[in-house]
Structures are given as C-alpha cells and as structure tokens.
Design a protein around this nucleic acid. Structure first.
Lengths: 192, 192
DNA sequence: AAGTAAATTGTCACATTTGACAATTTATTC
DNA sequence: GAATAAATTGTCAAATGTGACAATTTACTT
C-alpha cells in the first residue's frame, strides 16, 4: 500500500552529493543549497530524508567510514592472489585516481572540522587506528619473521605517506611526487 | 602630521587571529565575525585594514607562506651546530607542539579550499615544492655520497610523514603514533 | 475508482554573513 | 588650540543559509 519508498536510494544519493561537495569546498563550505544542487534535488528534500545539518554531517561521517572500512577490508582480502607487497603499494598509492581518491579528501574535511563534532572525531580516529593495524597485519604476512612493533611502525609510515599524498592532491603536484612516494613505500616494505 | 598609523601592526594582529580561526574552524568556517572577536576588534576594522573576504584570504596565504619560509630557512641554518640528523627529525616531528604546529593546520585549511582560490594554490604548491627540496639538501649534507635523486625521494617521504602527523593532530591520537613517526624518520635518514 | 503512504514542491520566518559608507573619536603637528 | 590624518565605531541593506511546516503530486494496493 502507498507509494514505494525511495528513502534508501535518496539518502545514498544525497550523501554522495554531500561528499563531492566536501571534497571540493570543505565541510563548512558545503551549504545545504550546494548539496541539493549537486544532488539535483530541492533543498527541502534533504531535510525530509536526513534531517537538519548536523544529522547530515553525522550520516556522512558514518557512511564514509563504513565505505572505507568496506573497501579496505575487501581490497586487503584480494591480496591472497599475487604479490602482497605490490598489491599493498598499489592500494596505498594508486597511480590512477579511482573511487577512493575523493574519499580521503572527505576524510580530511571531516578531520578539519572535527573540533565541532566530537562524535565524528571519534569515528575517524577509530578508523585511522584500525587502518594502521590492518596495514601492519599485511606487513606481518609479508614478512612473518619481523617483530610486530616494527611492522606497526612501518605501517604507520606507509599510512602517513598514503594519506599525505592524497591530501595534497588539490595542489596538483607533478607526477614525480607520486613516483617518489611509491618508490619509498616499496623500499620501506622491502627493508622491513 | 595626523595620527600615527597602526596599519602594519593591526594587519599582523588580524591575520594572526585569522590564522587561529582557520586552525580551529577551517577556512570556510572562519567568518569575519569570528576573526574580529578573536582579534578583539570590530568587524568593520578588518575591512578597513585588509579589504573584503577574498583580500583577507590572500593576505593570510601570503603571510603564512612567508612565515613558513622564514622559519624553515632559519631553522635549517642552525643545523650547522649539533647533529644534523637529530635536528632534522626534531624539526619535522617536534615532540612538543611549538609555534609551527598550528601553522600546518592553517596550511591544510588553505589547501582544502584551494579549489576556490587558484592564487593561493600556486603559493602553497610552490612552498611545498621548495620545502621538499630544502629537506633533500639537508640529506645530501648528512650523506654527501648518496645520489641526489635518492635524497630527494627520501626527503619527500619525510615531508609526507611530517605533514600527515600534523594534519591528524585534531584527532588527538595517542603518543605512540608520534613516536613511531619519529622512529621511522630516523630510520629513513640512517638508511639513506 | 478509492484509499493511502510516501515523494516532492512551495513558502514563510528567522538568523548569519557580508559589503559599503557615514559619523565620530583620537593623536600628532604646526 | 586649530588643522589634519588616521583610528574606531555605528548602521543599514543585500545576500545567503537554515528550520519548520503546509500543500500537492505520484504510485501502489485492494
């Protein structure tokens, strides 16, 4: 009975548009009007599906983190096949921008404004911590004889290089920077 | 004749306040009202000394970059005395937050919103490029027999770790992350 | 075709942000 | 103390962002 609900689909579309806006204008720079235009909807509909601004921000944070965890987990799972080191470098420092490139910009936006949203801060921090742990796990698989602590330290360095490479993306640095990042990442893994 | 001008001092105070706001609220989150309150002045006075919002943003970018270049240059100069490696690590990854910690957050804010301000983007990019070059120079001094290209790659990795460590600061990560960063930085320099 | 649940649009009031300019106050020089 | 240059404050209009709710349209079920 009644009209079929588009709620889930609409929510996803709205949050996608929100994400694209954050990647371009930052969190505070993304007005509801911006988001609505980006999503091709009226502003009033955002409120209808997701509530007020704060609700939107929290929903976005949850979605981005959830997506990230999903992507991370499934990517790392595929590492069974092929060279784990190579796969890890390709995952952390992809040569061609794919989906997740924009996502790290959203993450940066959320981090930047996390002073205002303590719940968001906790979500992001939790993800970063888990992410480092997962990378450390991979390193342990690559080199089982290496001490856990050393794997972890190296993992954090790799994550730093990966995150920073992405967060500098708006500057449109020359390709040699990405090349250097990949080279150093390979070295770090090799010399573990 | 006439009243003495406070212009230079006032401009500096305003931009300092602006910087603190950006570090806390992000660039778009820093309203003129915010900045005025932070500076302890009326909003109208911002306009009097520095013009409209865009003018303020560009002035801030110029000042931050100029300060950065100054700090960087003078810090690296002092490296004559003492252990260059240790000094470099302390400079890139200070154990206790000093002045420049807030500045990197400002830089991040400017990067994030650089889509809107192409001139700002160019300024920041130029600084990042020069910064990597300067660190590479230091590495060459530490290990003259190492190839220039290897110094440069390592320098970029160090810069990534440094920048990322600072940009994650709002998440209030545990000290072990900074410790790992410093350890890996020392390793990178040692194994150059 | 009637009923109904949900989508979609429209609109109003309120607060915030910004830009521009006029009016006033203050400190210095002659 | 008169002239003057600059600081400082005040005010107003325009634009934008936000929240809330009413009204309408659409698609499905029976």
């Amino acid at each position: 009975m009644g009209r079929p609900s588009l709620a889930e689909q609409r929510k996803a579309e709205i949050l996608d548009a929100f994400g694209r806006c954050v990647a371009r204008f930052g969190l505070e720079g993304s007005t509801l009007e911006h988001i609505a235009e980006e999503a091709g909807m009226k502003r009033s509909i955002l409120r209808h599906y997701l509530g007020n601004r704060d609700d939107l921000v929290h929903s976005l944070a949850r979605k981005v983190i959830a997506d990230y965890r999903g992507i991370t987990e499934s990517s790392l799972d595929t590492f069974r096949d092929g060279n784990r080191s190579t796969n890890l470098v390709d995952f952390l420092l992809p040569t061609q921008a794919f989906g997740s490139t924009e996502q790290l910009l959203i993450l940066e936006g959320l981090i930047g404004a996390s002073g205002k949203y303590p719940r968001v801060m906790k979500l992001v921090r939790g993800y970063v911590e888990d992410f480092v742990d997962l990378v450390a796990q991979q390193l342990k698989l690559i080199s089982p004889e290496t001490a856990r602590s050393r794997c972890w330290d190296t993992a954090y360095a790799l994550v730093c290089i990966s995150f920073n490479q992405e967060s500098l993306q708006p500057l449109k640095l020359e390709p040699k920077y990405l090349k250097a990042a990949r080279k150093m990442a390979r070295d770090l893994i090799k010399n573990i």
